[in-house]
Amino acid sequence: MEITVEEDKCVGAGQCVLVAPEVFDQRDDDGIVILLDARPPAAQHDATRQAAQVCPAAAILVRG
């Protein structure tokens, strides 16, 4: 699995952080997503896919 984020699409809703805090965080100043792990371990795959699905801006791309 490989994750990319499109920061320009992110609206700072924080849903990704709530679902997969080991993979995503948010910048303090504007809430924009921070990708902590572009290749998360298998144990994080389900949560990472769910985070991409709940992102209101579709800013998270999951491959693999």
Results as ranks from 00 to 15, higher is better:
Glu2Met: 13
Glu2Trp: 06
Glu2Tyr: 09
Ile3Ala: 09
Ile3His: 04
Thr4Ile: 11
Thr4Pro: 01
Val5Leu: 09
Val5Ala: 03
Val5Thr: 13
Glu6Val: 15
Glu7Asp: 07
Asp8Gln: 11
Asp8Pro: 02
Asp8Leu: 09
Lys9Leu: 15
Cys10Phe: 08
Cys10Lys: 03
Cys10Glu: 03
Gly12Leu: 10
Gly12Ser: 06
Gly12Lys: 04
Ala13Arg: 08
Ala13Tyr: 14
Gln15Ser: 04
Gln15Met: 14
Gln15Leu: 15
Gln15Lys: 11
Cys16Ser: 11
Cys16Gln: 05
Cys16Val: 10
Val17Ala: 13
Val17Met: 13
Val17Ser: 07
Val17Trp: 11
Leu18Thr: 14
Leu18His: 09
Val19Thr: 10
Val19Asp: 01
Val19Arg: 14
Val19Asn: 06
Ala20Ser: 13
Ala20His: 02
Ala20Thr: 02
Pro21Cys: 08
Pro21Thr: 03
Glu22Phe: 02
Val23Cys: 07
Val23Leu: 07
Val23Trp: 02
Phe24Gly: 02
Asp25Met: 12
Asp25Cys: 11
Gln26Ile: 09
Arg27Leu: 06
Arg27Tyr: 02
Asp28Ile: 08
Asp28Thr: 13
Asp29Lys: 09
Asp29Ala: 12
Asp30Gln: 08
Gly31Ile: 13
Ile32Arg: 07
Val33Asp: 00
Val33Thr: 11
Ile34Pro: 01
Leu35Met: 04
Asp37Gln: 09
Ala38Tyr: 05
Arg39Thr: 15
Arg39Gly: 04
Arg39Leu: 09
Pro41Ser: 03
Pro41Lys: 02
Ala42Val: 08
Ala43Phe: 01
Ala43Pro: 00
Ala43Leu: 01
Gln44Met: 11
His45Met: 05
His45Ala: 04
His45Trp: 11
His45Pro: 00
His45Glu: 13
Asp46Tyr: 01
Asp46Ala: 15
Ala47Asp: 12
Ala47Phe: 00
Thr48Gln: 01
Thr48Gly: 01
Arg49Ile: 00
Arg49Gln: 08
Ala51Phe: 03
Ala51Trp: 13
Ala51Glu: 06
Ala52Lys: 03
Ala52Asp: 03
Ala52Met: 04
Ala52Leu: 04
Gln53Arg: 12
Gln53Ala: 14
Gln53Lys: 10
Val54Gly: 07
Val54Asp: 12
Cys55Phe: 02
Pro56Ile: 05
Pro56Gly: 10
Ala57Tyr: 03
Ala58Glu: 14
Ala58Arg: 06
Ala58Trp: 00
Ala59Pro: 08
Ala59Glu: 04
Ala59Asp: 02
Ala59Asn: 04
Ile60Val: 12
Ile60Ala: 03
Leu61Thr: 14
Val62Leu: 12
Val62Trp: 15
Arg63Glu: 13
Arg63Tyr: 11
Arg63Thr: 13
Arg63Gly: 05
Gly64Asp: 15
